[in-house]
C-alpha cells in the first residue's frame, strides 16, 4: 500500500477530501453554534428570572410593567395552534395519502401531486395573508364573538400549510408496504377498505406516526401565519376564537422593535427560542429515528 500511495504526489487529492469534509461538517458547526448561543443567553436569562417562574408562571408580560416571565401563556397559544392545525392536517393529509397510494390512477396522481407541491411551496407569509383576509372573515361570519386576531384562523392555515408534508410522508409510508401484502389480503376476499384499513395502514403505522410528529413539529415552529393572524396577546386560554400569542410570534414581536443586546428583553428571545428549539429538536429526532426504523423493515 505505502509503495503505491507515495509513488505520486496526491496532496491535491488529500486537500480536496479535507475541503469536502469541512463542507459537510459545517452542518455540525451550525448545530453546535445554535446550541451554544441559545445556552449562553438563556443562562444569562436565568440569572435574572427563576426557572420555576419561567416554566410555571401563568403570565407573560416582558415588555410592560409589572413584568412577568411565565412561559405558560405562550405555550398554551402554541398548543392551540398545534391542536387546531393537527385537526386539519392529519386526517386530510392521511386521506390524501390513502387516496394517492391505494386508489388514484396514474393520471389522478399526476394532477394531485403537483397541487400538493404547489401548496407546500407557497410562502408562509402568503398563508398569513390568506388567514387574515379570507379565513378570519369566514370564521367571524359564523361566530360573532370571534376577535379580529384569533387562534382558529391561524391554526386552520397552518393546517393547510403542513397538510402537503403529511400527505407526502404518509404516501411514502403506505407505498413502502409491499404490494404482495395487498394481493394476499385481496385473495382472501377482502374489500379495498379492509385491505387499506386493516392491512396497509397498520403495516405503515410507524411511518405515519413519524409524519404526524414532523407535522406537529412544523406547526410549533411556524411563524408568519401565526404572527399575522393569531395576534400578539399572551393569553392562557383554550378558546380558539380569542387572540393569543405563540412562542414564535413573541420572538418576532421583540425583534420588530430595536432591542439592544444584553438587556433582559433581548435575553427572553433566547429563553423562548431555547424552548422552541428543544421541543422541535426532540420531535424531529424521534420522527427521524422512527422513520429510519420503518425503512429498514421492508428492505
Amino acid at each position: 500500500m505505502s509503495v503505491l500511495a507515495t509513488s505520486r504526489n496526491r496532496w491535491g487529492e488529500y486537500l480536496l477530501g479535507k475541503l469536502f469534509f469541512f463542507c459537510a461538517f459545517i452542518s455540525v458547526i451550525t448545530t453546535v453554534t445554535v446550541i451554544a448561543i441559545l445556552a449562553v443567553e438563556t443562562f444569562g436569562f436565568f440569572q435574572e428570572v427563576s426557572v420555576s417562574e419561567f416554566l410555571f408562571g401563568t403570565e407573560w408580560r416582558p415588555l410592560l410593567h409589572p413584568k412577568a416571565y411565565g412561559i405558560l401563556p405562550l405555550l398554551a397559544g402554541t398548543m392551540l395552534i398545534v391542536v387546531g392545525s393537527s385537526l386539519v392536517a392529519l386526517p386530510i393529509g392521511l386521506a390524501c395519502a390513502v387516496y394517492l397510494s391505494e386508489y388514484a390512477s396514474e393520471k389522478a396522481r399526476n394532477i394531485i401531486k403537483p397541487v400538493l407541491e404547489v401548496l407546500a411551496g407557497i410562502p408562509t407569509v402568503v398563508y398569513g395573508y390568506f388567514a387574515l383576509t379570507f379565513v378570519t372573515p369566514v370564521i367571524r361570519g359564523m361566530f360573532e364573538s370571534t376577535q379580529v386576531f384569533n387562534a382558529a384562523s391561524a391554526a386552520i392555515v397552518v393546517g393547510i400549510m403542513v397538510l402537503p408534508m403529511v400527505a407526502s410522508l404518509c404516501d411514502d409510508a403506505l407505498r413502502s408496504v409491499p404490494a404482495s401484502l395487498r394481493e394476499g389480503a385481496y385473495s382472501l376476499g377482502a374489500t379495498s377498505f379492509e385491505v387499506s384499513a386493516r392491512i396497509v395502514l397498520p403495516a405503515a403505522l410507524s411511518g405515519i406516526f413519524a409524519a404526524f410528529v414532523l407535522a406537529v413539529s412544523r406547526a410549533i415552529g411556524e411563524t408568519m401565519a401565526v404572527t399575522l393572524a393569531a395576534g400578539a396577546t399572551p393569553n392562557l386560554t383554550l378558546n380558539p376564537l380569542e387572540s393569543i400569542q405563540t412562542m414564535t410570534a413573541y420572538i418576532v414581536q421583540v425583534s420588530l422593535g430595536d432591542t439592544p443586546s444584553g438587556t433582559l428583553t433581548y435575553k427572553t428571545l433566547f429563553a423562548v427560542a431555547s424552548l422552541l428549539f428543544g421541543i422541535t429538536l426532540l420531535m424531529n429526532l424521534l420522527a427521524n429515528h422512527v422513520m429510519r426504523k420503518y425503512q429498514e423493515v421492508y428492505e
Partner: peptide, 24 residues
C-alpha cells in the same frame, strides 16, 4: 384462494394471519 410466489404473511401474529380472512 391463492398462494403466491413469495411468502407474504401479514405483519401480524401467526394466529391473526390465519384468522384474518374468516374474520373479515
Amino acid at each position: 384462494g391463492m398462494v403466491f410466489q413469495r411468502p407474504n404473511p401479514f405483519p401480524k401474529s401467526i394466529y391473526r394471519n390465519v384468522a384474518w380472512g374468516p374474520t373479515i
